[in-house]
Amino acid sequence: MSKQKLFILALIIFPLLGYSQKNKSLLINEILILNDSNYIDDFGERNGWIEIFNASYAPVDIGGMYLTNDLQNPRKYKIPKGDPRTIIPPRSYIVFYANNKPTHGILHLNFELKNSKLVALFESNGKKLVDKMMIPADAKPDISYGRLEDGGTELGFLKKTTPKATNITEEKETSAEKFGKLDPFGIAMAIIAMSVVFSSLALLSLIFRNINKVYNLNIKAIFKRRREEEPQAEAQEEGIPGEVAAAIALALHMYQQQIHDNETTVLTIQRVSRLYSPWSSKIYGLRQTPR
């Protein structure tokens, strides 16, 4: 394949990769189906809501994508484009109110969750499903349902409703604290870490012990040498004594040494140039001579 073709192919593939990556990072994170005394929207009303989480480390604009509660009608609610609120910052959230009042603003959907079986997010082509969440039949008022950890796969009723915030409400042990508990004397750490340091440097050592063999491997030269060896073998069979062969080898060696001594007498001189800078030039500090 020519370089030009490869370049064109790369131009086509890379944006597609970026596109799919962008949408993989969007997840329906938490939903509240029945809202009696919970989160209030910007009109002072209590509605069901849907929280979408951007799991990536880059902002994602969900303008142009679709939210629906019916897989047969994926284009039920189009999230308007061009509003800065549809840009979800990295590892952050956006909440849509499922109140069937789309006239209240772009964050208010044209359906409710009460009688829905699912909620789904579709890409801007209205065909490809980005994420969906089944609505549990036994939903209770003011208790939200969603991913037990942001972006995780395990679903369930959450202990606290957390619109626009992480679903993890229990204080988690840091990995350092876990290490401290499980390995109070640091022995495991020392063993693991020293093994990793040793294995990575041993691998490096191994590679560089053998790498010169790999790149010095000149296949053509090997074949050439073999072809040359064949007549030599025949000559030996014809009866050239070993002493003669040794004398020839010595003569050749001495000849090579002499060649080495007659090195070319080309001198390499590094050019030293003073770099020009207007900051240090006196010319620029002087006034021009009047004409």
Partner: peptide, 19 residues
């Protein structure tokens, strides 16, 4: 390249001090 491994062994100081 065998000497690389000495650079690994001396890191024992890090984990000795950690303990």
């Amino acid at each position: 390249p065998r000497l690389i491994l000495i650079g690994a062994a001396a890191q024992l100081g890090i984990f000795g001090a950690y303990m």
